[in-house]
């Protein structure tokens, strides 16, 4: 474990807590892409099945359970409890165009052709693009509430910090995982324009307005 991964995991935890709390407190999921949340729930449930087979550490187990529980709870709030506030009209990204390539790529490029390894690889590929429906929705509505942009900043920072973690592990522990690294770079790259807008606008108290 290293500082980059710890801060990255905490940033990730912060992001999903910010989102769950925002929906719960405002009793509304306006501006939130339910499709992205479904993809994230799928990412965690497919990646963390090894909860039942391998024990890494208490930290690892607790965090996996939290990620699965919070992502499913968020989907429940969006699609069940506060369904009336779900913005169907702007959450229109075709997620089959993300799921199919992730499945195909996981079957073609993986470390080991076993059930759990294919699921893990699918989860890594899917996570790299899972935020697209949310970014697409923000671009369609042309703006995002500041709490949503804090959520996106924390979520984007987590994988950016993981890149530093992978560099650290490559040099200090002499191990690396190319699938996770390439997917992590793609995932972080997708946030770049958002990071720019967040730093130049939101941190100066302005609303996040995207050029529609």
């Amino acid at each position: 474990m290293n500082i980059f991964r710890i801060i990255g995991d905490l940033s990730h935890l912060l992001a999903i807590i910010i989102l769950l709390r925002k929906i719960w407190k405002t009793r509304s999921c306006a501006g939130i892409s339910g499709k992205s949340q479904i993809l994230f729930a799928l990412v965690y449930t497919t990646r963390y099945l090894d909860l039942v087979t391998t024990y890494v550490s208490l930290y690892n187990t607790v965090m996996k359970i939290i990620f699965i529980a919070v992502s499913i709870a968020t989907c429940y709030l969006i699609y069940m409890k506060f369904k009336a506030t779900y913005d169907h009209n702007h959450d229109t990204f075709r997620i089959e165009f993300l799921l199919a390539p992730a499945v195909i790529l996981a079957l073609l490029i993986n470390h080991d052709f076993t059930f759990l390894e294919i699921l893990w690889t699918f989860s890594i590929y899917l996570e790299s693009v899972a935020i697209l429906p949310q970014l697409f929705m923000v671009s369609k509505t042309g703006e995002a509430e500041s709490i949503t942009s804090h959520y996106l900043f924390a979520l984007g920072s987590y994988r950016a910090l993981y890149i530093l973690n992978w560099i650290y592990r490559y040099h200090n522990e002499e191990i690396y995982d190319l699938i996770a690294i390439v997917a992590g770079i793609v995932q972080t790259a997708l946030y770049c324009d958002f990071f720019y807008l967040y730093i130049t606008k939101v941190l100066r108290g302005k609303k996040l307005q995207l050029p529609a």
Binding site: V56, W120, N165, E174, I175, Y176
Partner: peptide, 10 residues
């Protein structure tokens, strides 16, 4: 450097 086998990351 070797390829990481066990997925010990989240």
């Amino acid at each position: 450097p070797v390829h990481e086998q066990d997925h010990d990351e989240l």
